[in-house]
C-alpha cells in the first residue's frame, strides 16, 4: 500500500465530525501526523499548539465565514499550506478571492489518494520554499 513516510503535520478542519475523524484515521494509517478540529475555535487552537504544515480547510464552517478562517490561519501561520475542501461546486466571491492564495482546492467527496497526494505536494512545496532549518525534524527523509 502506501509507504509510511515522514510525519507531515496535517490539520483537518471540518464541522462533520464523523468525516473528520475517519479521514484523520485514514491519513494516520498513511503515516501522517493528523489532528482534527470540528469548530473554528478548535481549529485556531490546534493551529497554534501543534503548528501544522498543511491544513485541510472546509470553507463552510458554522459561526465564521470560510474566507475569514482562511485569512486568520494564513496570517498567524504564514508558512502553512492550506488546501480548501468544499462541498459546493461553485465558490462564492470571497472563496474565489482567497483561492489564489490556497495551495489547491478539492471538492467533496474526496478520494483518499487525492487527499494524500495533495498533502504530499503541498508539503513538498512548503519544504522547497523554506530553508532547511524551518522544517521539522523527520521531514527530511521524505521521498
Amino acid at each position: 500500500m502506501v509507504q509510511i513516510m515522514a510525519q507531515v503535520k496535517v490539520l483537518l478542519v471540518d464541522d462533520e465530525k464523523d468525516y473528520a475523524v475517519t479521514l484523520k484515521e485514514r491519513l494516520q494509517l498513511r503515516g501522517y501526523d493528523v489532528q482534527a478540529a470540528c469548530t473554528v475555535e478548535d481549529a485556531f487552537e490546534a493551529a497554534d499548539s501543534s503548528n501544522p504544515e498543511v491544513i485541510l480547510l472546509d470553507m463552510k464552517m458554522p459561526g465564521m465565514d470560510g474566507a475569514d478562517v482562511f485569512n486568520r490561519l494564513k496570517s498567524s501561520h504564514p508558512d502553512v499550506e492550506i488546501i480548501i475542501v468544499s462541498g459546493q461546486g461553485a465558490m462564492n466571491e470571497r472563496a474565489k478571492e482567497i483561492s489564489g492564495r490556497a495551495f489547491d482546492y478539492l471538492i467533496k467527496p474526496v478520494e483518499i489518494q487525492d487527499v494524500a497526494r495533495k498533502i504530499q505536494e503541498a508539503w513538498e512545496k512548503r519544504s522547497s520554499r523554506l530553508p532547511e532549518g524551518g522544517r521539522d525534524a523527520g521531514g527530511k527523509d521524505a521521498n
Binding site: 464523523d18 468525516y19 475517519t22 479521514l23 462541498g87 483518499i112
Partner: peptide, 16 residues
C-alpha cells in the same frame, strides 16, 4: 453541499 457531506462520510468510512 448537504448531500456531499454525508457522501464524504460514507466515502471515508467505507475507505477506512
Amino acid at each position: 453541499h448537504e448531500i456531499n457531506n454525508p457522501l464524504s462520510i460514507i466515502n471515508q468510512n467505507a475507505g477506512l
